[in-house]
Simulated scan of single mutants.
Amino acid sequence: MATTIEFNGSAFPSIILRDDLTQTWNNIRLDSLPPVESEPLLKFLELIEYEKLENFNPDSVLLVKASSCVMQAVYAAAIFRDGESIVLKLGDNQFPITQKGDLLHCGKLKGKVVVTEEEDLSGNKYPKATCSFVSKNRDVFRVPIQLASRDLNLTVADVEATVINEEPILSLLRQVPGNSFKMHELGVGEYQLHSYISSSDGEYGTVYKLHLLDGRTVLSRGNVTILLESGWRPNPEKPLMLVISRIEKLAENKFTVDCALRERLPMLGASTRPVVTVDAHSRTVPEPELVTVGVNDSLEDEIPY
């Protein structure tokens, strides 16, 4: 008999009993779940062909947010964008998804997008989307689709029109979450960006994230934040650059950064001589060999995805 499976918090009740959730974000191993919880997840993994995924990590198939060892939320399978690709994220693992017409394909599964209208506590309506993947034996796996509703001001009609017209859904999706770099960690240089900007609510207001072409994200600050808070957004028809011209270290883990956005391509071979200030003593960097474009070799090993 065919069954419908959803990987939400109620699918993993054993996590409520755990007292080893010592971090804010906790990775859950597949073999740490009881069989009644792990078997449907393992079945799903086999159908999306986890064995073909390079560096599959069985020690991170779920992500649990906790406080004082008490579970707050469980994050299982969800669909995002990763740059110019659609991916299914499961713990620390990402699986490629392809779109053909109005169908999404992941491994041996194919599914259709279903759009509904939800309402938040303030009465504001927003679109919610899921993909119902079906296997050959007719089991259905419902996976949430993470829409960039707030960033793009999406309506149900926007999403439904895209699905019905069999248009690519990539542009409607949120960027896959990951560790974001701070600007001073990138270093002085020019970095080419995607035209979309993501945002979320932080402790001190809205947090904006810029998305580099190499897949990394960086937190906005200074001039960039002022520009975004004014309501300005990039024109997708124009190139976009993050320019970091100066970094000053004031104290341990405290930096000032001069930065701006530019609607142009990188200026390779630029003759500017950026000033990097370390421990409040300025020094001019003599004859930089080239302007960094999108990749900083010293940070490659820290790229989360």
Rank of each mutant, 00 (worst) to 15 (best):
L90W: 05
D151W: 08
E237V: 01
D92A: 15
F181V: 00
L42W: 05
S198A: 02
T272P: 04
L240M: 12
L103I: 14
A11E: 06
L45W: 03
T277D: 08
V74N: 03
S132P: 05
R264E: 14
G123K: 06
L88G: 07
T155S: 14
W25T: 15
E167W: 09
T24V: 14
N93H: 04
V87N: 07
S271P: 03
D20F: 03
P96A: 05
M241W: 02
F255S: 01
R29L: 11
L219T: 13
A157Y: 10
T284C: 07
E54G: 07
R264W: 03
V143W: 04
A270E: 12
P144L: 02
T162N: 10
L210T: 04
S32T: 15
P236M: 04
A77M: 01
S60A: 15
P13Y: 08
K182M: 12
V218T: 04
V188F: 01
E117D: 09
V291E: 08
T116D: 14
L186H: 08
G189V: 02
V156T: 15
L53W: 04
V87E: 04
V291L: 00
L240G: 06
Y204D: 14
N57D: 14
Q23T: 09
G205N: 04
A129S: 12
S68K: 12
F255G: 07
A77K: 02
P288F: 04
V140K: 01
S298D: 13
K112H: 11
R81L: 09
V275Q: 01
I79N: 01
V176P: 01
N93T: 05
G178Q: 14
S14R: 02
E39C: 05
S60R: 08
A280F: 10
L147R: 00
H105E: 14
S230A: 03
E39A: 14
E287R: 13
Q192S: 15
L109D: 06
I28N: 01
K112S: 12
R264N: 11
V156P: 03
Y75S: 13
P35A: 11
N179E: 12
E117S: 11
V293S: 07
V275N: 00
P96V: 01
K108A: 15
K238M: 11
P168H: 00
I97H: 02
T217Q: 10
V113D: 03
V257G: 02
L240R: 05
C106S: 11
D59P: 02
L170R: 03
L268H: 11
V188A: 10
D20L: 06
S14I: 09
E46G: 07
C259M: 09
E6D: 01
A157R: 11
H194F: 15
M71R: 13
S135E: 09
E289V: 15
L90P: 10
G189Q: 06
I79G: 06
V224Y: 04
S199A: 13
